[in-house]
């Protein structure tokens, strides 16, 4: 069963005196159980709109969404869901401990369960030191950690995180990345939105790219990049002059750096041939780096391709 399934999900915001905008346009998407799915798009692409529809904060204009087969507008579906909003806001007059207790009650956890939960989550998110301070005084990073803890209350199998790393410093981003991976190890499904490609590239199994409310691409990171040949950078030492000549013919680039030489080869097969040649010629392979096509380049191309088409305004 898919953890998330949407079919033709559409949201048009309309209001008195406001121009109606189609913020999400027939989104059909499925996220498998146990995967980390990255939801990419620029500002205003409709990521938050999608997420709010999944969490039943918004009512779809048309189309449906299902979480583990349950319609996302039912209360049962929300039992399976942990949600971290874009900028999580909690009651400022409460302490982290009281906050987690409150959400535990909303999830129907008993008092001993809530205590256990606090032990587990305060440990995981390092909340012990600030347990009894009011949230009012907290920094962005602390709030984000509380938000993550709240999303994990009740141990839901699906996490929906709206830009979980935005506004955090490198250490904070890494913490969140590690948390996401850890949740995956616990067999949770994680759906998160971002416009920071590096974060997505590092941890996602699959990504979807949203441009102006439309899903333009969806698939595994490596297949999305598949059309672009991987390059391999080979660093060698001590090769003979004729080996060097042969390699220079095969390589796309060649550089000499002090005592080593660097060859950039156009494919994995070419790299393998080159390694054999170096070894048979008495040389030594010092380093080997695959150079992957960057998701970022791909994203920019996709974006440019679709931006030309004007946005579907509602007549």
């Amino acid at each position: 069963m898919n953890a998330i399934e949407t079919s033709q999900l559409t949201k048009i915001y309309s209001g008195l005196g406001k121009k109606a905008t189609r913020s999400l346009d027939h989104l059909s998407l499925s996220v498998q159980e146990g995967e980390i799915f990255g939801f990419l798009g620029r500002n205003g692409a409709g990521k938050t709109t999608t997420i709010k529809l999944l969490c039943s904060l918004l009512k779809p204009t048309s189309g449906e969404a299902f979480l583990f087969g349950q319609n996302a507008r039912t209360r049962e579906s929300r039992r399976l869901l942990g949600y971290l909003p874009e900028q999580p806001y909690f009651y400022e007059f409460l302490t982290p401990r009281e906050t987690l207790d409150f959400y535990g009650k909303l999830r129907g956890l008993g008092s001993s369960e809530r205590t256990r939960q606090w032990e587990r989550l305060s440990e995981l998110l390092d909340l012990k030191d600030i347990a009894h301070q009011r949230i009012k005084s907290f920094s962005k990073g602390m709030r984000q950690r509380i938000g993550f803890a709240v999303a994990l209350v009740g141990d839901p199998p699906l996490l929906i995180l709206d830009e979980p790393m935005s506004g955090l410093d490198p250490v904070g981003r890494r913490t969140i990345r590690e948390l996401i991976l850890r949740c995956r190890d616990e067999k949770k499904t994680i759906f998160f939105s971002s416009h920071v490609l590096a974060d997505v590239e590092l941890i996602c199994d699959r990504v979807g790219i949203l441009v102006r409310g439309q899903l333009t691409q969806c698939g595994r990171v490596d297949t999305l990049l598949g059309g672009h040949v991987d390059q391999v950078e080979l660093v060698v030492r001590g090769i003979r002059a004729e080996t060097q000549a042969t390699l220079r013919e095969q390589a796309e680039q060649h550089r000499i750096l002090e005592d080593v030489e660097v060859f950039v080869l156009g494919s994995r097969a070419a790299a393998n041939d080159a390694i054999r040649l170096v070894q048979s010629g008495g040389g030594e392979v010092v380093e080997l780096h695959p150079i992957k096509a960057r998701l970022e380049d791909y994203f920019m191309r996709e974006q440019a391709r679709h931006e030309e088409v004007p946005r579907g305004d509602v007549a």
């Binding site: 969490c55 904060l57 209360r75 949600y83 909003p85 900028q87 806001y89 909690f90 999830r107 938000g147």
Partner: peptide, 14 residues
């Protein structure tokens, strides 16, 4: 206004 509702309404409650 303060968006404290987001994390509450997304809980399993009516």
């Amino acid at each position: 206004d303060k968006r404290t509702l987001y994390t509450i309404i997304s809980q399993p409650l009516h």
